[in-house]
Write a protein that binds this DNA or RNA. Structure first.
Length: 276
DNA sequence: ATCCAGGCAGATG
DNA sequence: CATCTGCATGGA
């Protein structure tokens, strides 16, 4: 196990980055957070003026946390006189994680029409049931294990009607080189994802953003719809996504994540944020 | 208890 | 093209 020090800056906050809804395998500790990705783990503790990251693979996580992107620059580019700036001020420390595409595909298949606490539980039980025991935690399962589990397994651990999606997707991906999909442009990659059973526009866009670092997509879920229903009263979610992608271009994914976190946290904390 | 959740597939106007 | 419905489950 190795450890690295991460300087604290205004544009990186571990709590905001992990709690903003892009990742589900993490937990709070006394001094910070633990996060799991594939078969790796990282423990990040708050040491006042810096973070200490302890991990089995510190290089994996220094890429995972996306320290090379200039978030201050992006925040300056997209600022406005309204809710985008308000959302940035609230979630200034969010980074978009560079997660494993396969893990993201399964995570966001589970996420549809579901609450985040329950999503976390379902994914955790998938790891417990099929993942390698790493001593203290379970790895995300291999495609072999996922494909061999059967629909019953996913139903039994509480995946609900998504069990069939998980089973079919696992069996399909067994014969595919998902890593090759990274070479496709966003439009063709989205088309590929949409051809899978259980993946629609919103789940595809989350996979594009969180699993393939396509920051030019703007996933539209129920929270984002609430934000924009005043401005686009008769636009479907798909249409809304197109319009917002066009408006924010290569920064769309970042803007979306700041707005999502702001809206959801405001509701959760019963703040009466002005969002229309 | 009733509503709703980081929606989607399939069926029907 | 747009709109409607059923879906499994459990947190609030």
């Amino acid at each position: 196990m190795k450890s690295i020090e991460i300087a604290k800056t205004p544009t990186f906050n571990v709590e905001q980055t992990l709690e903003c809804g892009q990742v589900f395998r993490y937990g709070k500790t006394e001094r910070g957070y633990v996060v799991f990705s594939l078969d790796h783990y990282a423990d990040i503790s708050d040491c006042g003026d810096s973070y200490i990251l302890e991990s089995d693979d510190t290089e994996y996580f220094s890429n995972y946390f996306d320290f090379d992107t200039d978030y201050g620059f992006i925040q300056q580019k997209v600022q406005d006189k309204g809710m985008v700036s308000a959302a940035i001020e609230f979630g200034r420390g969010i980074h978009i994680l560079k997660q494993n595409p396969v893990e993201v595909i399964f995570s966001f298949l589970v996420s549809q029409n579901n609450h985040i606490p329950r999503i976390k539980g379902i994914i955790e039980r998938i790891c417990q049931g099929l993942g390698e025991d790493k001593g203290g935690y379970f790895a995300f399962p291999s495609l072999d294990k996922l494909a061999g589990a059967g629909e019953r397994f996913f139903a039994d651990i509480g995946a609900g009607y998504r069990a069939a999606y998980l089973d079919r997707t696992a069996k399909f991906l067994l014969d595919v080189q998902v890593e090759e999909w990274g070479k496709l442009d966003t439009e063709n990659l989205r088309r590929q994802l949409l051809s899978l059973h259980g993946i629609g526009r919103k789940v595809a866009d989350c996979i594009l953003l969180f699993g393939f670092s396509r920051c030019d997509v703007f996933p539209v879920d129920t929270w984002i719809q609430k934000i924009y229903q005043c401005e686009y009263p008769n636009a479907t979610a798909d249409k809304m996504s197109e319009l917002l992608e066009r408006r924010y271009g290569c920064y769309a994914g970042f803007v979306q994540q700041w707005l999502y976190y702001f809206k959801r946290e405001s509701e959760r904390r019963h703040l009466n944020a002005v969002l229309c």
